[in-house]
């Protein structure tokens, strides 16, 4: 392949990755934005989504049906787990930021170990629910990846609508703005927190379900989306959802392109250093604007 098609392929791959990343990072940004906590176990929700997707596909047998079951059931299971974590752990120390980080590091290890015990150490693939291929003049492209981009786009829009246009979203934004005042106005802040934490986990789980037919389900797969989501949320401006989504596309696509032409390692080195420098010198993020705190 010559450079042009090669670049096109890299861009397409990058864009699909960016959609999945945007979904995952949106979950992290939501949790940080509303609850002011950093959930280090976020990538494990992604991994759980993927592992459940494999499990359902395996149980159901038919790839398309299995996918449909997984995309509904996995986020529900993962959301439930998140609710339990919220009640049993995070709320007990009142979401104290540093304690939350330490505890969610612990959860990361626990969830990984559970996945290892029950799912095993192998990376397992799942057949795509559709096997349509888009034939371009230079190469064929997996139709499923376009479906992934489509579903992600829909979910991003739905989340966006939910936050900006519905009463639930208003309650969330009020809590984000000032949780004490929100409490005083009768908003059940701890229920909002639980809901947001579960919603963030569910977004990651859906991203995990979507990625399984492309990558593979593996108990250590949560670390990369965690790192990338961190990068995206910070560069986008901590707590800014719009910034996070923009950053997801910038990072996702450039990661795709740099990985194709150079080394995947190099793009990650550059991204981690960029994140550190953004936090130090421009803590409001590159895309968050003044609105982000």
């Amino acid at each position: 392949m010559s450079l042009g098609p090669h670049l096109l392929l890299a861009l397409m791959e990058g864009t699909v990755a960016a959609f999945v990343l945007a979904l995952t990072a949106l979950g992290l940004a939501l949790v940080f934005g509303v609850m002011r906590i950093v959930n280090v176990a976020h990538g494990e929700f992604f991994m759980l989504g993927a592992v459940f997707a494999w499990t359902f596909a395996h149980l159901v047998g038919n790839p398309a049906l299995g996918f449909l079951v997984a995309i509904v059931a996995s986020p529900i299971l993962v959301g439930g787990a998140a609710l339990v974590i919220d009640r049993a752990i995070l709320r007990r120390f009142n979401y104290q930021p540093e304690a939350t980080i330490v505890a969610t590091i612990g959860l990361l290890y626990i969830i990984q170990q559970l996945a290892l015990e029950f799912y095993g150490p192998d990376a397992r693939s799942v057949e795509a629910p559709i096997n349509f291929r888009l034939q371009l003049p230079w190469f064929g492209y997996s139709g499923y990846k376009l479906v992934v981009a489509g579903i992600s786009a829909l979910l991003l829009l739905a989340t966006w609508y939910g936050i900006t246009r519905t009463k639930l979203g208003l309650v969330m934004r009020a809590t984000q703005f000032d949780s004490e005042t929100a409490q005083a106005f009768g908003i059940p802040v701890d229920r909002v927190y639980a809901a947001v934490f579960a919603l963030g986990a569910m977004l990651a789980a859906i991203a995990g379900v979507l990625i399984v037919p492309i990558k593979q389900a593996y108990y250590m797969m949560g670390l990369e989306p965690l790192l990338l989501s961190f990068i995206v949320v910070i560069i986008g401006g901590l707590g800014s959802l719009r910034g996070a989504i923009i950053a997801a596309f910038v990072i996702g696509i450039s990661d795709g392109v740099i990985s194709v032409f150079f080394s995947p390692n190099l793009s990650k080195i550059l991204a981690t250093l960029l994140v550190a420098l953004v936090l130090v010198f421009r803590p409001e993020g590159l895309f968050g604007g003044k609105a982000a705190r």
Binding site: F93, V102, G106, I110
Partner: peptide
């Protein structure tokens, strides 16, 4: 993992 969670 359990040690970290229980300690906090």
């Amino acid at each position: 993992g359990a040690a970290l969670v229980l300690l906090t």
